[in-house]
Structure formats: structure tokens, C-alpha cells
Amino acid sequence: MEKLLENKTILVAGAGGLLGSRIIPEALKQGAKVIAADIELDSMQKRLSSMGVDIECDNISFAQFDITNEENVKSLFSDPSLALDGAINTTYPRNKTYGKRFFDVTLQSFNENLSLHLGSAFVFTQQAAAYFLENKRQFSLVNISSIYGVVAPKFEIYDNTTMTMPVEYAAIKAAIQHLNKYVVSYVKDSNFRINCVSPGGIFDHQPEAFLAAYKGKTHGAGMLDVEEIVGSVLFLLSDQSKYVTGQNIIVDDGFIL
């Protein structure tokens, strides 16, 4: 049986992060050649090695890459040695004051976070489109949104914790979904697709009070393991989703219902 990503070359931005590092071994298993890009090259390689990825194998290469640097992004997509079939952006750039409670967020901080996260998603998406128009290869881009780009936060699940749901995050993740639709409508070519995956909460050792409250809003799964997001990403990168475009796959065990 042919593997899902057989003979495809996939760029993974944010390859050293929580989601990117889990996508890579599964993409390799599905026959992909992977370009793993991250701002921290050494830590990315160490993390992947610790997960059993053979970083010396022929099917993986590495790029040091700052997604908030426009010239970095343009340079990566204009590399003449690339023959990309798709890309996944799992990066999550933010400033040092990100994540404060609503009335404590300054306009400067809000604007900076939008610039870092939404701005970098814009330039990555823009350059993916430019790459497609230059090379005329079938191309599938996956951006990461969130359940909180779809529905308002359920603030009660943060009671009895120091956590909150950052306003910047909600604004950015909602905007990414419409950015996708704008760009695929602008390019208007069946061979160029952009879609989103919107995860529910991903387990990362949050406080017990939060985990219990969150679980009560799902159909029983509670917080998801990051691996449970990967299948939807691989589906959207593959030809199994050949005419799926401008869509958003929500993976949340019913949290938003």
C-alpha cells in the first residue's frame, strides 16, 4: 500500500516545538522527505534525536529559520534546491508579556504579538503562494488555528488557577482562518490549497483544577495528547484531501459543541 506522503517533500516550520517535532517522525513514516526548520537548530536536532528520529537519514534536512524575519522566509522559499509539495507552520512566536489577563494587556504588547504571530503567518503564507505561482507544483499548506479561533473562551475552566485565555491568541487564531480563505481565493488554482487544523487543549502539565474543568466540557477525552493532532495535518498535506481547501478541521472531542 502506498504511503500517505510518498514522494512528497514537506517543509515543517517550528520543527523543534511541541507539535512540529511530533509531525516529523510520522511524516517520515508516511514516506515524506522533510525539511525541518526552526530558529534553534541545535535544540531542534536534539529533540528529534531524543524521539528516535535518525537526523542523519537521507529523508530529512535542516534549516535555521526565523519566521518573524521576512528576508529569512523569502530566502527559504526561493531556495532553488527545494522541490516542495507542502508545508506546515507550527510556529508560535510571542513576546515576553504575552498571556496577561485582559485588562493588563497594553496596546503595545497586543500589537507586538499580532505582528509576531499573525504577521509571520501572513508572510509564510504569502511566500508559499509565491512559491506555487513560480513553480506551478501542486502545493498544500497547513496553518494551525485553535478552537478559540472558532468560539469564545469558556472562562470558567480557568477558575482556581493562575491561567487565562489570552486575548491576543483568540484574535490571531481567528484571523489565520480568514487569511487562509483570502489567499486561496486570491490564487484561485485547484493545485494550491491552504487549510487549518484547530486543536482543542493539548496536555502540557497544566494544573489539575484546569484539567478537570476542561475535561468536563469534552465528551470524555479531556486534554488531547499532541500526537492526536498529527493525523489531521498529514491528511491535509496528502492527496487524500486533494480538493479540500479553505477549510478548518477542529480536533477537540466536542469541546466547542
Results as ranks from 00 to 15, higher is better:
G14W: 06
K33L: 11
Y243P: 01
P80C: 11
A209H: 01
N135S: 09
D104G: 03
I10W: 12
E168S: 11
L133A: 09
L118C: 10
S81C: 08
P80L: 11
C196V: 07
I250G: 00
N248H: 05
H205Q: 13
D85L: 13
I24N: 04
A37D: 06
S109V: 04
D204T: 08
E26G: 08
G222D: 06
N195K: 01
L18F: 03
D85F: 12
I194G: 04
R47I: 12
L82K: 14
D225K: 10
N59C: 11
V230G: 01
S232D: 02
N113P: 01
H178P: 03
V226N: 05
E156S: 04
A36T: 13
G246L: 14
A174S: 05
K173Y: 02
F122L: 06
P153K: 06
G14V: 10
D42G: 10
A209L: 00
E168H: 05
V184M: 06
L257I: 14
A221Q: 14
Q108N: 15
N191C: 08
N191G: 11
D79N: 14
N248V: 08
A174Y: 00
F65W: 09
T9A: 03
G149Q: 08
F203P: 00
N113V: 00
I24H: 02
N180Y: 06
G119K: 07
G17D: 08
E208A: 15
F62R: 05
L133M: 14
N89D: 13
S232Y: 03
N95Y: 12
S146C: 07
D252F: 09
V34G: 00
S190V: 10
I249S: 02
V151K: 12
L116Y: 02
N89A: 05
H205P: 02
V244F: 04
K181W: 03
S50H: 01
G86F: 04
S198K: 04
S43N: 13
F102Q: 02
D54L: 03
L82E: 07
F255S: 05
N135I: 11
L257M: 14
F235Q: 06
N135E: 13
M51A: 14
E2V: 10
G31V: 08
A129F: 00
T162A: 08
I250L: 01
G14N: 09
D225M: 05
S109E: 08
F235C: 04
R101S: 01
F139W: 05
Y214N: 06
V251N: 02
H117M: 14
G200T: 07
A209E: 07
F77L: 13
Q240P: 05
A209N: 04
S190P: 13
M223C: 09
E70D: 14
N95L: 09
I39F: 03
L179T: 00
D66N: 12
L211K: 15
G231Q: 04
I24C: 05
Y131F: 11
S145C: 12
I39M: 02
E208H: 15
K29A: 09
Y148L: 02
P80S: 14
E70S: 12
L11T: 06
F102D: 01
V53I: 13
N180R: 07
R101K: 09
